[in-house]
Amino acid sequence: MTKSLSFLLVDDDTDDTSLFKEVLEEVNPSISFNWAEDGQQALQFLKDQDSILPDVIFLDLNMPRMGGKECLTEIKNDEKLHKIPVIMYTTSSQSRDIEETMQKGAICFITKPTNMKELKNILSSIAGNVHSNLEKTLRLLSNNTTTFIVC
């Protein structure tokens, strides 16, 4: 039996968080869902010995206390954490945000979809390919969706 997946969403927006959780449950109820409401809380969770490290991190940009860019830098500078794929998950579609986060090591930049079917489609593609060609899957996905995805 394969180990069940674990996703971490770092986002201060509770509406987006509950939609994300709802859709993720529809996709696969066995995926364990963790949530942090800002970068600081995320790092605290990730560095806690008792936490099970997530398979994917979804990271928002604008958050209080510690934003996504700073959090991403911290994750990529941490020996234990830097291999976890980070997907930027945000309202922005600004090229400077995209360039900066991709340069810092995010594997993908997704502008939050406004269509739940799209979100479901994205989450199920990610869930199905976390350990096999995640980047390639996302690249394929970006060509076949109206959601703004940059890899």
Binding site: D13, S92, K112
Partner: peptide
């Protein structure tokens, strides 16, 4: 402005 608008659509 983007943020609330996205939610209206969603």
């Amino acid at each position: 402005l983007q943020e609330p608008l996205r939610k209206i659509i969603t």
